[in-house]
Amino acid sequence: MEFWTFFSAKPLLWLVVTIVTFIATSWFNRRLGGTPLLHPVLVSLSLIIVFLLLTGTPYETYFEGAQFIHFLLGPATVALAVPLFDHFERVKKMLLPLLLACMAGAVTAAASAVLVAQALDASLGTLLSIAPKSVTSAIAIGVAEKLGGYPSLASGLVLITGAIGCILAPPIYRILNVTDEAVKGFTLGVSAHGMGTAYAFEYGLMAGAFGGLAMGMTGAFTAFMLPLLIPLMGIG
């Protein structure tokens, strides 16, 4: 077991574990026809959590390796400007309805989540961590911190919301007869942030671009809106 003691403390091991697990779960997910129920992110993080618990590894040790992947979230967010630019003409024509949809979606997401959790007697920390659940992790962490919630719980709830959004969106699109790629992508970005955006790229590059636009708009809007909405709802 000496090599385990040596390697389990090295960032390299946890970096490799994260990438290998993700490649394996992505392959598995494709074999199953891409079901969002077994989304590679959710399956990966479940497997990694089980592995860390079995080996008695603290999250901090794991993150020393995984932080190199986590870091790329920043430049990846900036990179969203590229597909956005590619479809700028279309975005320009639709700016007003897009803004309206984004604002209505963001308020619906935060208010309904807090109201349901409150009705079911969730603790205050949970309420404040669930409020930013529809925006990208990077923003949700900062917002939860400002509101007095738990940043890491918020980032976990963001991920679960992302998976739920990817599962719920296709059947809702069929029921509401939504066929336009841009609408599909934008709605996924508003309701399911980066995971919805990643999922939207499977509809096509344009859907992905609108997902990214929605994620950016919703994130920025939510960061300003929540500090006003939460006192209005009588919590915080």
């Binding site: 992110v41 959590i49 999250y59 995984a66 932080q67 790329l72 992790s137 890491s152 976990g156 991920l159």
Partner: peptide, 15 residues
């Protein structure tokens, strides 16, 4: 993009 969400997601184990 999806891979980049895994490290933060594993943080759920602290809650």
């Amino acid at each position: 993009l999806a891979l980049l969400f895994v490290p933060a997601g594993v943080g759920l184990m602290t809650h």
